[in-house]
Amino acid sequence: MSSRVLGFFRISNPMIRKELRQRLRERRAWLLPSLYLLVLSGTVAFCYYMVVQEGTQRGTELQGADIGQAIFYTVVFTQLAVLLLMAPVFSAGAITIEKEQRTLSGLLTSLLTAPQIWWGKFVSALLYLFLLLFSALPLLALSFAFGGVEPLALLKATGAMVLVLASISAVGLWCSATFRRSVHSTAAGYAIVLVLTIVTAVAFGILLAHWTHSLGGNHQDAPPVYVQAPLFLNPMYPFLSLLDDTDLRKFAYPASSYLLFTAMGLLAAAFAIRRLRRSGEQV
């Protein structure tokens, strides 16, 4: 590997240090993780209460594994929802802020390359999301105390979350490289997240209804690939296959989803770097 490529990825990239320093000086650097953990803790407590309440009402003996699984999946999906809401905030404003405070020309006329600038912004946006993600690991590990969840499930969920967040952050950076103002790029970032989560689910619903109708409304099989296809770009999809539920396990193409998210992230990165190289008119 050439020294140029190594230089691009090295952690000593001055952009990464600058970004992290600036980010950790903001008040939200400690406020957000505190709020985030508070929300997750509340959700776990609520989930535990609901599961125990339901078991008491049914009058059946409550298994520890049921509580463990309920806590695990609740934390995973709550984390995903909250981090999907936060990802555009950190990435979509990362380059526009340089345009707004008129500092982008200083970066572009230095010896930093456009990929180095992009990589610095990407790593710092992602590292902050990872800080939130990994700070919640003790809450996820709570489920091990009750049983019913394998460590492999935790690894899979964390891996899928990292991939989805990296891809969404790359898309946010592309918006940031394209627009001049943070408010526009953040709005565009949220619009894309909405399309990926809501529009793909609606499209899936329509295709599923059509397919069910064509079978006379009576089916036991998993929907075919073409019906599930819109969901491959839904950030929730890779997690559905993790669930220990017979109905939800029918969504069994996580690899297609991983590939699509990887491709989307790489494309967004390539377009963002290209846009960054040509952003002399915006400075």
Binding site: Q22, Q101, G106
Partner: peptide
Amino acid sequence: YLPDVPGVYQDMRIAEFLEFFADAF
């Protein structure tokens, strides 16, 4: 290059600002 409206990082210390650009060069 000194642009017409030179931007600075308000939330950096003066020495940090210069060190960052020394690294960038």
